[in-house]
Amino acid sequence: MKDKKDKRVYAKLFLSVFQLSACTFGGGFVIIPLMRKKFVEKLHWISEDEMMDLTAIAQSSPGAIAVNASILVGYHVAGIPGAALTVLGAILPPLIIISIVSLFYQTFRDNRIVSMFMAGMLCGVAAVICDVVIRMIQDILKQKRLLPLSILVLSFAAVRFWNVNIILIILVCGIVGAVDACLREAKKRKGDSNGLS
């Protein structure tokens, strides 16, 4: 009896994530509110607070947010087997769609109309990325701190003009960020104890 119920949960878990992943265009954050709706509001498998925590972990881990969030939801509901199922559900839709696209890619690409469409779309992609970058830079400017701004300018010069390996840049900036956080934490603690005395 219990076995049967387990199977139903697994099937539901897989199908839910598969559906969500198949409908998440543009990737990234879009899947988070959709997951919240499905697993918190509809199925009641995860509480509101837990979903917030899962989102924070998904965002701060490397890799695609949609994949990370799926792993966490699956693990939360049904342990490692659950995580395996949800990760499969998350990657199958893009895997299937892009496999088909790449089979026909060369034929498509040689077509004059498709080629003109892709040329136009490339301008669209460039515009979207410009828009995203400007919005993200505005967020950095809003912090009004010198460190993030210097990291922004220096990393740009490093990657664009000095041809520094980007993995190296990521490692260095990660360390700088960690040291900065520790120093600020220490300062805050010192400030607190001064305030008390």
Partner: peptide
């Protein structure tokens, strides 16, 4: 906290890299 610090340092660098890749795409377009 530590992890959030790492992310704080990374975000501007990631933006810079996306900007650079975006410029490459613009030149191509």
């Amino acid at each position: 906290t530590m992890l959030q610090g790492v992310l704080g340092g990374l975000r501007p660098a990631v933006i810079a890299m996306i900007a650079s890749a975006g410029i490459s795409l613009m030149i191509l377009a």
